[in-house]
């Protein structure tokens, strides 16, 4: 299963890869929303892990872009600004889940697995 992680912070990208790959997930990394959209066609990920706050185009932009292209892919939004307001806002935007930074490897895996399960049960 291919997961695309989008974050301007290298350490976050690397952290996600280090947690997810040993668990059998294929991880593709993108440093910006633009890069993610560019490589989407070739990579065709099953799940997005997107940071909300990024320079130029933020995570919400990316989500709108995906919706516009009718690429119906589940998205997990992440943010360091992990207040209730932000969470509520993220879910309203159509994210499947909100992942507060910083997270432990267990929290990341838990979130990813739950989303996949939900997707599977939906299908």
């Amino acid at each position: 299963m291919k997961i695309m992680v989008v974050d301007d912070e290298g350490i976050v990208l690397e952290s996600c890869r280090r947690v997810l790959e040993p668990e059998g997930f294929e991880v593709v990394m993108a440093k910006s929303a633009t890069e993610a959209l560019d490589s989407f066609e070739t990579e065709r990920p099953s799940l997005f892990l997107v940071d909300i706050k990024m320079p130029v185009h933020d995570g919400l932009y990316l989500m709108r872009a995906l919706t516009d292209r009718k690429w119906n892919i589940p998205v997990i939004l992440m943010s360091g600004l992990n207040t209730e307001d932000t969470i509520a806002e993220a879910l309203k935007m159509g994210a499947c889940r909100f992942l507060a930074k910083p997270f432990t490897p267990d929290e990341l895996l838990e979130s990813v697995r739950q989303v996949i399960q939900k997707e599977v049960s939906h299908e």
């Binding site: 996600c16 943010s79 600004l81 910083p102």
Partner: peptide, 12 residues
């Protein structure tokens, strides 16, 4: 917000 990114790395 800024602290949380590196903290993610530390925690992971």
């Amino acid at each position: 917000h800024e602290i949380n990114n590196p903290l993610t790395g530390v925690l992971t």
